[in-house]
Structure formats: C-alpha cells, structure tokens
Design a protein around this nucleic acid. Sequence first.
RNA 1: GCCCGGGUGGUGGAACUGGUAUACACGAAGGACUUAAAAUCCUUUGCCCACAAGGCAUGCGGGUUCGAUUCCCGCCCCGGGCACCA
Length: 952
Amino acid sequence: VGHPRSYTAIDAVARKHRMQGENVLYPIGWDAFGLPTENFAIKFKIKPQEATKKNIANFTRQIKMLGLGFDWSREIDTTDPAYYKWTQWQFLKFYQSWYDESARRAKPIETLPIPAGIKGKGDAAIRAYQDQYRMAYKAASTINWCPRCKIGLANEEAAGGTCERCGHSVEKREKEQWMIRITKYADRLLDDLDQVDYLEKIKAQQIDWIGKSEGAYIDFRVQSASKTHPIDDRVTVFTTRPDTLFGATYLVLAPEHPYVDTWLKDGVITNEKNVLAYRKTAAKQTEQERLAEEKEKTGVVLGGVFAVNPATQEQIPVWIADYVLGGYGTGAIMAVPAHDERDFAFAKKYELPIKEVVAKKFGEVRSDDVRRDGVAAVIIKNNKVLVLHDEKYDIYRLPAGGYEAKESAEEVLKREIQEETGYKNVEIGNYLGQIEASFDLIFAKGRRHKFQKGFQVKLIDEEKGEMDQEGKTIFVSEWFAKDEALKKFAMNKESWGEEEFIRRAFDEKELCFSGEGTVVNSDFLNGLSTSAAKAKITDWLEKNKIGERAVTYKLRDWVFSRQRYWGEPIPLVHCKTCGYVPVPEKELPVLLPDVDAYEPTDTGESPLAKISSWVKTTCPSCGGKAERETDTMPNWAGSSWYFIRYTDPHNEHALASAEQMRYWLPVDLYNGGMEHTTLHLLYSRFWYKFLWDLGIVPNACGSEPYRARRSHGLVLAAGGEKMSKSKGNVINPDEVVKEYGADVFRVYELFMGPFDQAVPWDTNGIEGVRRFLDRVWHVFQKTEGQKNETSGQNAEFKTDLETLYHQTVKKISEGIDALQFNTCISALMILTNAFQDAGFIPEPFRDGFLQMLAAFAPHLAEELWHEIGHTNSIHRSGWPAYDPGKLQTASFELVVQINGKVRDRFPVSAEISEEEAKIRVLSSPQVQKWLEGKTPKKMVYVKGKIMSLVVE
RNA sequence: GCCCGGGUGGUGGAACUGGUAUACACGAAGGACUUAAAAUCCUUUGCCCACAAGGCAUGCGGGUUCGAUUCCCGCCCCGGGCACCA
C-alpha cells in the first residue's frame, strides 16, 4: 500500500490538470536492472529476464486495477534493448567527452587541446593523454566489496561501511573500475540548487552529500633526525582553518598513507614494529567497528621523523591514527588541538602540546567566568568585560592573558550602529539576562543564528542607569518605528534582506577550547576576523609556495562498473593495439547474452567474462582480435535519464527528439520517496547536466531536470512500525481492493494523513471512507428526478449551500496543487454531508461535485456522471470554477472577546459597518454583564471575525 | 554532535497573512429502524465542575500582543538524514 499512495496522489494532480485542459504527461515505467531483480531471480532460481517480466506483469495488473491514469503508450523498461541501447550510447558520450574547467562544461574529447610535446609522439601518446581526461575512465581504485552480494559498491551504496542491499559489512578491495567524473560537476550541482524548488530537507541532503569545504593545502617538511637515513619530504595536509597554523602541534597521517610505506621501506622509522602492528589492526577493522569504538582515538607516533611547522619553524611529531581518513582531503592533517575537538581529544590522551591561536589582546576576565567544561562568549565594551556562556560553537574565547576584541562581524555591526545612529552604548550579546550594565541597544543572539523573523532588541533608558527588571522586548518591525536614528539604520540594513542582515551580524565565529594549553599571540593575525585571517595566511602560504587555496568535496567520482550479470553491458571493446574502443553506434545495443548461469563469482570478475563466445570479438578500429568489456553498469544508469525518454519513448534515432524534449522538459513535479533523494537525484541531475552541456538536451530546457521535487511519507503498519515482510505486517493492495474497491482504497490512501508525513495504516479508518463514498452514491440516487434546484428549499439555505460549494471548489483546486489531499477529501466530505442534509444535490452543483470527486475516485465519479445523463467521459469534461463573489455568506458570527476571552457571539450581516458592530456589541446583555458598567478602553474590530474589548 | 521534520482529544489529524482551538474521520456511549443482528440514520463525546455560571487546555518555562497552535527567547521529547570529512 506504499507505492499506490504516491501514485494515487500524483494521479489526482495529473487528473485535475488534465481536466483543466492541460496537456499532462504522467508516465510509468520499470527500472528493472540491478541487484534487487538479480537477487530475487537467484533466490527463486529463475532468470532475471523472467523475474522482470513476471513482476512487471503483476505491477501492471495492480496499477490498472487502481485506475491510475498513466500514459501506457509511453511505458518504458530500462532492461529493454530498445531502451538500454540509448543508455549505452550515453555511456559512450561520457567516454568520448572531457570537462573543460574554464568553460565549466563538458565537451567532445576531440576538442581537448593536446600539448605540442605530446602531439609529436604520435597517436598512442595522444590517446593516452586523452584517456586522462575522459568523463568515463578506467582506474584502479579501492572499492567497497560486499562479500555476500559479491559485488563492488559505489561509495554511496556503502555508506556507513555496510552494504546498502544486504547490510553485510564491506571490505576494501583494489579493483580496476570504470569511473565517471561526477566530481567535476560538484559546484554546479551545488550552485544550481538555487534554481529549483525542492523540499528543504532534500536540498540539505544534496548539499550534505556533496560536502564542499573551503580551505588550503599546506606543505609540512618532514625530516629524519638520523644521519644514516636522512629524508626531506613534504607532506601535504588539507585544512579549513589555515589561520590556526600557529597552533599546529603535531601531524597525523592516515594509517595507509603512502609516505608511511616509503619511510618504512627506507628504514627511517625507528618503531617499525608498533607502526606495522597498528596499520594491521587499522586495515582489518571494518568501517563499522572503527566507528563503533565510541570515538576513542588511537594512534602511533612515527619514531625517527619529525615535521616542521612552516609558520613557527617548530619541530613537531608525526603520528598515524585512524581518525584521519585516507580517502578524504590528502589523507593527512595538521593537528590543532586548541581549535579542533578531535585533535583536542587525541592530544589529551597522548599528552601532546596544545596551543591556542588568538588574534589580539584585551583586558582581564576572571577565570571563573569561563566555564570549565565548555566555552564562553566574550564581548567587551569600554572598560567592561562581559562573559556570556554559549554552546560550544560560537565562541569568542578569553585566554588567560586576555586579548583585545577583534573586529568580528558583530563588532562591525556594533560600530555601524554607533556611527550611524549616534548611540554610544551598543552591545551584541547572547543572553540578555546576563548583561548587567545599561546599554542603549542590545542585540540578543540566538543559539543557532536562526532569526528568521526577527530577534529581540532591548532599549534601555540611559537616565535611569539601570534596566528595569523585565526590560522591554520588542520586535524588529516595531523597533524600526520607535527611534528615528535606529529606524534609519535598520532601513539601510533592510536592503540586505533580513537573512543577510542576520548572517552578517552573527556568522563569524571562532572555535577555541577554554582553559587549556598555552596561547600564541600572533602579531601576524593581529586584529583580523577569522575569515580575514584565513585569507591573509593563505596568501602568505601561496607567496612562499608552501601551500595553496583548496576546495575539497566528500563527493567522489562515480564507480560505474558492476561485476554482475543483470545490467547494461558497457559498450567498449578492448584491443591490445588500440586500447579501449567504443562499439560503433550502429552496432548498439550490445545485447546482454541470454545465459543459464549468471550467478556472481568469487573472483570479483563479471559472470560475462566466462562466456567466451560473447567476449571474443573484433576490434572496431583495427579489425584485429579483441575482447568485450565484461563489466556491466550500475542500476542507477537507466534511471538517470528515464524522464527524458518519456518525452519520446519510441524514438529509434535518438534518445529523444529535441522537439519533444523542448516541449516537455524540465519535469514540473517529481515526487518520490526519500530513499532516492541523495543518490538517484544527484546522479540524474548530473547526467542531465552533462547531456545539456553537449547540447543533446536542448539549451532551452534549462540546466536542471526537475523543477520541483517532493516526497511522500511512508505508510506504516497499524502499530506505527515499518511494514516489512519479516514482520508479516505488510498490507497488499489486492486484498484491500477486493474488499473495498479501488476508489475506497485510493481515497483512503489520501485521507489517512498529510501526504508528506508517515502515517500508520488503520483498518477502521478505511471504513469511514467507504461510508463516505456510499453516501455520495445514495445522495445521487435521491437526487434523480429532482431537477428543480430550488424545490422546497428556502433562499437562505440555498445560499449557504452555494457558498459552501464555491468554498469547496476553491479549497480543492488549490489543495491538489499544494499536495494537501487529506484536507481536500475532508472538504468533499463536508460538502457531501451538506447535500445529504439537504436531501439531494441541487442541479448547479452536480457536475462540479463529480468532477472534483473524479480526481480521487475516478470510477464512481464516471459512473454517476453517466447516470445523471452525460455521455462523454468525466475525465475529459472540465474542471469546476468558483465564483470569488460567492465565497462569503450573507451573515457571519461575530465573536466578542473581552480581555482576551470569548464572552459572546451572535450572527450579524456580512455588510455590517464597524460603527454598527460596536453598537450591537455594546448593547448585548452578555457583554454588558461582563463590562460591569465600565466603558471599554479599547475596541479592536476585525471585519468578518471578531470584536475585541479591553477593559481595565 | 550537525542538518531536516514533528509534538494539538481515547486515535489519524484540521485551523487562511496572529482572530471562535479541536474541522473531517475513526473509536466509544445512548437512541431509531429490526423478532434479532448487520447496514443505515439521529444524539452525545477535550478536561475539571456540573443545576447553571465558570475555570483549564495545542510538549515545558518565559516574552510580545486587545488577541498566540501560529511570532520571539530558553528548554524537553520523538522521528528521519548525515557523521572522526580536518
């Protein structure tokens, strides 16, 4: 019952827009390559081809049973050779392209400039040079190997050290793999998120996965004390905080760092045994075990070598430790215990020196002002120092010797306020209550820098010298109005937008740990904010050629090979003389051979490698003997572009015609589960951008494939736990449809709760929906013959029904587009109940009511549509419109509040004036009773709603 | 730890840009119809007190406001995602 929920929901959207006369493409297809199908086939000892066929047949039956309005003429199947021909074709495009960094786009490989020196060396050299730049390339890499599934996994599929499919922990293996340079698109995948309308959490996941961080590479010289084994190497580290270089007191390499191999081999390391032992345990450990150890840090110092801190020229020890990851950055870090939590823990454990870098000095603060276990925010003003406790991260720390306030963004803000408003005493702080002195203006800063709508500001009376106990908290908008100078200042800042204003005010921060270690007062960084310090020191590093600006990403290149049978064969041929040669376009698709034995092998080689008749071929380039590539593509391949194929699914000459792509793309609404909001979404965005770069997707379509991405909530079992086969709590739509019918099932799926939230399946709840549809049916039966709309009804009653009808049309028309299906259904229920009370459905509302119902319960609506005399299909009939003038009833219930409490309510005409309303209110006996003879100090009237009286 | 959600009756959940909190539905209780049951229909249903009149309630504590589920500050709890990423 999970899949049908989103199908039904988007079906309602599709049907509504279709009925509104729009051309709607609501497609369905099967992404059937990959592990799930293959494992299923192995388990039941059938061929994956058959498993696919069977499951497609079953899903098709179920979908048709539900009456979903998919366009079956566009049905696709990623395992169909007519489809995967184009998947292979696109792979070849990756192979035959390179990424031009300066143009920020992919281009055909022929356009790659070949350096003169290489040109002279002949074709082989040119080829080798090109191979280094191809978007698809083969490289030996450490991959995640799942011993149970016998498959190499992409990093994305082995997150957390376990196989995404089976949960088994993965091993590291060296393997030649086809890779795709998705990392070249990291910045664009990040930047272009601004263009799209995705759910916030989906955007966050994309950003998170790409994991961009900006900093610098810094070279540390590593030398040996020994005369017999002298070395002078340079270890490069990556850091996001080059400004803390002065505080780097040791270096840590990942255990598998190649330098360690070299030094061991050269006999430089004096404690070889310990080092080897540590490396061995580290290598043996699975990712899972490593993380399971409660983050207890371990490591071994490398005896016989030391590094030199380029800023201080101090000699510092070099360690290996598994808290440094080989695969990220350079696999080496400079440890700055005073400014990094992990380094701090490590330094404490192994008693390594801790040095703190501070930019300036200022006056004293008592040590007990600084919390022992945490940190404190410190801000000074004139001669006073304020210590404000805060959470770990926003820290303006106070060393024992003290330092002067640097000009942080807070300071800038403060200065600007002072200069522009003439206010002298301006303070920016964290906790209002802890500020003792009197100030004119205080910005209170929240824990998370999240001031979306405003923040608290205190205005203190300077003459009194002391703020009164309560203070006066006002909102920004009001604060703007209270003081001309402040208003002017704030108005200027308004052009930043609120967010930018706040970001500027509070974004800059510095991380330190209090009360530990010694302090380095750096003249070099004197008076600089963190970002300015970073820039200054990076400039210095670059100038002296010991470092450079750098950006790193968590995102890695996409491992595109699978050593499994059930996937698209990679359409390349390997020839001893020509290297890898693409299969010519006219020979595509390279068909997956139909074989009996397709189980994965222990050797890690594709099962296809065993089929020599298939493997042996001739080289398309030289005609000599050659072998086919036996790796297949990952299941993500076919699904990376299927939305493009939907626009032109039967095209034999192209993946889709430019005309069709221009007509349909980008996708307006993409709904799916959260399980595809990192990988599939990222891959398909990347894939699309690549095609767009090459002009395969027309420029006019834009660089993002999906305009909006939404996601539906899970359907949970009755107890609120996940449905799973092992728990036996899975509900199959077949059973539900058998008992209640497709329409009840559909409507319940939408009524059960908010579309984007997880909701438990409730067998009682579905009964209510059945009753509702029964009621609809019955009220229509009673309606028959009642052609005269006003028969027996008084005018007021009719007006109410009319108002309700127009309100419902508005609500449902808007609700469907906002994906608020549960309230749409309830609106239909309310209207139905009103019809039932009336005894029948007045003529003018019949068609519209059914048309709205048709979006949710298409079968019943169609049946009743014909019953009331129509001969066309309701699904092509149109969508009801509402009359904005008929949304209000002639009268409304005026609510009277006295001192915030509801004391009376009575109906009044919608046209009543404020004066009249006041008279009516004051003459009410109820109100008079509560007034006890007093006159209200104030009367607030909200038209159509409420009268609020304030009495002393 | 970080990032997203969320916390409202016995239950799933409503509530527009701050304006009658608890729509709609489930469940429960009572009633009508029936020999009886099912189905259907009607009534009641946040809590306290109940004769009425009141009072208290949207996770907790504050604040702003004539008025707060909604805005602000500080917390607590639950779900999901990420995580020794330097």
